[in-house]
């Protein structure tokens, strides 16, 4: 982003998290865009997003990795990565999937935190 873009962004007060989500779901990814969307939604739901279950749009071969990234990323092992790679995902796709899962976990917290603040404001 150049300086003019940065200035425009501040002027528009565009939210940083929304821009990350746009980028991760956008054309810069190397994996199927629908898969990235499904991983973000699944991860956010696992992390407590206030929404109905997104169903099982994440392939089973990736669901263990996605769940570990969301619940306890420090427990992810080489074997988890190798298992996903063995299912046919290359390194760039795995990078996308990890980022998408991490993002979903962060977005859910952001939504929950901001929703609690709005709920408190309504009680005033």
């Amino acid at each position: 982003m150049n300086r003019a873009d940065a200035k425009r962004e501040r002027a528009l007060n565009v939210n940083g998290a929304a821009l990350v989500e746009l980028a991760v779901l956008g054309s810069g990814g190397r994996s199927d865009a629908r898969l990235r969307q499904a991983v973000v939604e699944q991860a956010a739901w696992l992390a407590g997003r206030d929404a109905p279950s997104p169903g099982d749009k994440v392939p089973e071969t990736l669901s263990v990795l996605v769940e570990k990234v969301v619940r306890y990323a420090y427990r992810v092992t080489d074997e988890d990565i190798n298992a996903a790679a063995g299912a046919g995902y290359d390194e760039n796709e795995l990078f996308d999937i990890i980022v998408a899962a991490a993002l979903g976990a962060g977005l859910a917290r952001r939504e929950r935190g901001l929703a609690a603040i709005s709920a408190w404001e309504k009680t005033r």
Binding site: G16, V20, V69, V99, A102, R109
Partner: peptide
């Protein structure tokens, strides 16, 4: 908090 919940996982 949200941003670091992303970074920690990556």
């Amino acid at each position: 908090c949200a941003a670091f919940n992303v970074m920690n996982r990556v």
